[in-house]
Amino acid sequence: MSTETLAEPLSRAGPRRLGSLRLRLMLGVPLLSGLVVAVFEWSLGGFESLREGLARTGLLVLLLSAAQLLFVEALLLRPLRRLAAGCEAMESAPMPLTPAADLPASGLAAELDRIGHAMRRARGSLWQQDQDARELRRELAQQRHLLEQARSALDANQRELASLARTDALTGIANPRVFDEALRREFKRAQRQRGLLALAVLDLDQFKQFNLAHGSVVGDRALQRVAALLNERFKRDTDVVARLGGEEFVVLLPGFGMAEAQGVLELLRDELRALRLPDGQGSLTLSVGLAAASPAHPYLSAQALMQAADEALYIAKHAGRDRLSLAA
Rank of each mutant, 00 (worst) to 15 (best):
E139F: 03
P99G: 10
A156H: 14
G172L: 04
G289Y: 12
A13I: 07
R121S: 05
T167M: 04
A274V: 05
L147S: 13
T171P: 01
R144C: 01
L229G: 02
E88R: 11
M1K: 09
V72G: 03
G255C: 02
L204I: 11
S43D: 02
L35C: 14
D168E: 08
S216M: 08
S294H: 02
R114D: 11
F47T: 07
A296K: 15
L290I: 06
R184A: 12
H145A: 11
G282L: 13
L50I: 08
L147Q: 10
S283W: 05
A162S: 15
D270F: 04
A150N: 12
G172S: 05
S2E: 02
R120W: 07
L10C: 14
G263I: 06
P254K: 03
E139K: 08
A190C: 13
M258C: 07
D237Y: 08
L275R: 10
L197H: 05
L83V: 04
I115A: 10
Q281P: 01
D279Y: 01
A109L: 07
A133K: 11
L252W: 04
R321P: 05
A109H: 01
A198C: 03
F256Q: 07
K208W: 12
D270K: 13
V61E: 03
S287D: 09
M95L: 13
S294I: 00
L10M: 15
A228C: 10
A200L: 03
S11E: 11
Q262G: 00
V226K: 01
F256D: 06
G219T: 05
L284E: 00
V37Q: 12
E181H: 04
Q262F: 00
L154W: 06
D322A: 06
K235R: 10
A228R: 15
A274H: 14
E91M: 06
D180T: 10
E111R: 15
L63V: 15
L23N: 06
R16D: 09
S283R: 12
V201K: 11
A165V: 03
P278C: 09
H214Y: 15
G172M: 07
R221I: 01
R121N: 02
D102E: 08
G263W: 04
A84P: 01
E135G: 14
L69V: 15
G255Y: 05
Y299C: 13
S125V: 12
A292F: 09
G215I: 01
E271F: 03
A122S: 09
R137E: 12
A274Y: 10
V36D: 10
A292V: 06
A293G: 01
S125P: 00
L18K: 07
F47W: 02
Q142I: 03
A222C: 15
D279F: 04
S33K: 03
L70K: 04
P94Y: 01
L31P: 02
S152A: 13
L252C: 04
G195Q: 07
V241Q: 06
R120G: 00
A242S: 09
L170G: 07
A141E: 13
T171W: 07
T98C: 01
L23S: 12
R192I: 09
D155S: 09
R114S: 04
L146D: 13
